[in-house]
Computed example of a mutant assay.
Amino acid sequence: SQVTQQEINLTPEEKGQLLKALQDNYANARVYRYNYFYNNCTTKARDIILKSVNGKIVYKNGIDKSVSFRDLIHGCNANYSWASFGNDLLLGFKADMQTTREEQQFLPDNLMRNFGQAKIVSADGSSRPLVKNTEIIVRGNDYAIAGKTKVTPQFVFITLLILIAAIVVAEFKTKKRFLWVDILLLLTSGLAGLILFVMLFSEHPTTSTNLQIFILCPLNLYWAIYIIKNKRNERKLRKAWTFLSIMLCIGLSGRLIQVYAEGMPLLALSLLLKNCCNLYATRKND
């Protein structure tokens, strides 16, 4: 990978302040709560530099406030669909909010670009560039950027939707219920939902409210056990399917508020289709 060096345009006094700030950080803040958006290795370095400058930092260009944290991450993993899927699955709707220039600087390239165009304005009105010199000190090797894999999350969930549709048709034709399919789906989605449930209590604010938990719901584990115990009681099963269908509808509507991971609406439709089939099959005993 390439390494670019920026020489910060500091006065001798500011260099002394920077050294003291680094020493204080080493003594008192070596251990801190890392946050990949708000308090990471890039923002920590930026804050120490800005604290050491005598004057105000003025950036040259405006900012696109419509860009969200999720948009910025998508720009970094566009060719890695499964990495993007994992990020989008764990990030809640707070990651879709507009970001400020300072928030966008959690990415090193953004901070480098902003610093390269910024100037220091002193109290007397004089100004000087924040960066004196920029040079590449290690050139990156040419390598092929990973291409998009054919087996994407979208492909997997389309396949699942087709498979569920085929199972539903088979159930209608044979007039049999494949409850093992429902139990498998509930166990799988419930176990995945446990991860989202744990993330709700994370100290990273952008994971604390995630509407995808209505699709990958940890309560599905309870309903899997409920169905196993009541597989001959159609009335009780209908209550279970009704509850699950309501949860999935809420999850699908959440797509209007939050950007979902690739294929998640298809997963919700697959589960909802199976539930609707079960509701129809148990209607006579309601």
Rank of each mutant, 00 (worst) to 15 (best):
S1N: 12
V3R: 14
T4D: 14
T4E: 15
E7T: 15
I8R: 09
N9T: 11
N9Q: 01
T11G: 04
E14H: 09
E14L: 10
G16S: 13
L18M: 12
L19G: 02
L19N: 13
A21F: 04
A21M: 09
L22T: 00
N25H: 12
Y36R: 13
Y38S: 12
N39Q: 14
N40W: 08
C41F: 10
A45E: 13
I48R: 12
V53I: 15
V53K: 05
N54C: 10
K56A: 07
K56R: 15
Y59Q: 06
G62Y: 00
K65M: 03
K65L: 13
S66R: 11
V67E: 10
S68A: 09
C76V: 14
N79K: 11
S84Y: 03
S84G: 09
F85H: 00
L89G: 05
G92L: 04
K94V: 10
D96Y: 05
M97F: 14
Q98W: 12
T99F: 01
E103Y: 09
E103D: 13
E103N: 05
E103S: 05
P108S: 03
M112S: 14
R113K: 15
Q117T: 12
A118Y: 01
K119W: 00
V121L: 11
G125Q: 04
G125Y: 06
G125W: 11
E135W: 02
I136P: 00
I137E: 08
N141W: 03
A146Y: 05
K148Q: 13
K150H: 03
V151N: 15
V151Q: 12
V151Y: 12
T152N: 09
V156T: 03
T159K: 04
T159F: 04
L160Q: 10
I164G: 11
F172M: 08
K176G: 04
V181I: 14
I183Y: 01
L184C: 11
L184A: 15
L186Y: 10
G190P: 02
L191S: 10
A192G: 07
G193M: 02
G193S: 03
G193L: 10
I195P: 08
L196D: 10
M199G: 07
L200M: 14
E203P: 00
T206C: 11
S208F: 06
T209Q: 14
N210L: 08
I213V: 09
I213H: 00
I213S: 00
I215W: 07
I215N: 01
L216E: 08
C217A: 15
C217L: 11
P218L: 09
L219W: 02
L221G: 01
A224N: 05
Y226R: 09
N233P: 04
L237G: 12
L237W: 03
A240T: 11
T242D: 00
S245I: 03
S245C: 07
G254D: 05
A261V: 01
M264V: 15
M264S: 04
P265H: 00
A268S: 09
L271R: 06
K274R: 15
K274M: 12
N275G: 11
C277L: 07
A281V: 00
T282C: 10
R283T: 02
N285I: 08
D286Y: 11
